[in-house]
Design a binder for these strands. Sequence first.
DNA 1: GTACATAACTTGTATAAACAAGTAGAAAGG
DNA 2: CCTTTCTACTTGTTTATACAAGTTATGTAC
Lengths: 242, 242
Amino acid sequence: MPKSKYESIYQTIKDEILAGNYVHGDLLPSENEYTKRFGCTRNTIRRALAMLTQEGFLLPRHGRGVQVIWQPQKGRNIFSLGGIESLREAADRNQVSMKTRVVRFEERICDEKLSEQTGFDVGEHLLFVERVRKINGEAIILDTNYFLKSETEGLTAEIAEHSIYRYLEEVRGMNITTSLRRVTAEKAVKRDYRYLDLQEYDFLLVITGQVFNSSGVMFEYTQSRHRPDKVCFIESAVRKTV
Amino acid sequence: MPKSKYESIYQTIKDEILAGNYVHGDLLPSENEYTKRFGCTRNTIRRALAMLTQEGFLLPRHGRGVQVIWQPQKGRNIFSLGGIESLREAADRNQVSMKTRVVRFEERICDEKLSEQTGFDVGEHLLFVERVRKINGEAIILDTNYFLKSETEGLTAEIAEHSIYRYLEEVRGMNITTSLRRVTAEKAVKRDYRYLDLQEYDFLLVITGQVFNSSGVMFEYTQSRHRPDKVCFIESAVRKTV
DNA sequence: GTACATAACTTGTATAAACAAGTAGAAAGG
DNA sequence: CCTTTCTACTTGTTTATACAAGTTATGTAC
């Protein structure tokens, strides 16, 4: 449950947009109308609207109002880059069935080469998890995670089959706060061919990420390799008018 | 020049981080210290810091302070997905030489199929521009743009060789405000092989975008096809602590 | 009728202030 | 010496208010 006012207002308005209450180009109710409806100040409303703007739902226009520019995408499964969302959460939102198979689950000690790749310190004890994600029956995604061993005590392969994030957040009470992601395209390697239904494709869309918890330590390095026809990543940006 | 206080504070602090005044993990001065330094309220400081957090420079930690988590990347040219930045601007920032060659510059009328792809209305008069970008001598990027003809009167092939955005903003006084971007990986097609130095690669990292001006009309559809070894896109995200 | 001023909206920026909640170190107690 | 308590910090949320600036429609003067 959202704990703050602006978060619950954000969620409410977002739900209304996703439900199709507004068509592309419509103006939202004005900020003042929202203050009456939600019983709060303009600041709080503006904060919620700013989040939705950041995510590409809205286009505020000085003096006129706030326009809804969201339109549902079709064809590919959409994973928004705009927020930290686990694959499980994204799959639920896209209403697709996702099955996870853990193919490797072992402890590793970070060496020079791995440190270069992941950003962990040499000698650090890591938990290495490799998972295949089946979406609607097809093996589409190969997920590789390195977790800081010390922060993931109690994590089992069985839990990894479901949602690791849910475990870390709900059971261990960890707060995942910030992540940095890089998007690249890469040639398929042996492991991709071995585990994924690549069809005619010999390349993958790769999302690499470092995740920080609220203690400020980087506790996860992730690589997510996607068959390119089934996914796309969306992002919105707001240019500072110079 | 930044017109608002929070923008100039944002720029000042960002410059200090990029200049290397703080190393990975350092705490920034507290918000209260910044209010004294910049002579403004905490809200204004927080707004500037929020932007830097959004871009992945900072990790604020409740009760402790704001940690700098930025570290310079190496290897690939980085194009941040976090802001609307033209290729020319990104190239300047990465200090690489970029040459642009216009290979097509013609008027088109939007038909059914093009409308499906770009989101423009059928019958709309469009300006179609195709450009090859050479970075450090290699043809790396194939750029395809469809502009609303009515909004780009006076645009010539010669201007397109430089920066279209600079022209639109400085000469035509247009404000580019919001863009929606999709990231995918796609198989190379004939035109890619014809115009780009693809080397052994047979696929591309593709960024597709719709750009809205401050009048709220979508006035540009962009597709940018990149040889995958030379670029990567980075993005930061902040998870709402549930 | 057309042009211009005006009024009533809208969003954008900034200040000021209060309290909540997390952190860390000093002080006090055993 | 160790533990607990308190205090002084930090960031996080929210209210209230004021004014700036862009848009639109209305009404007035010509």
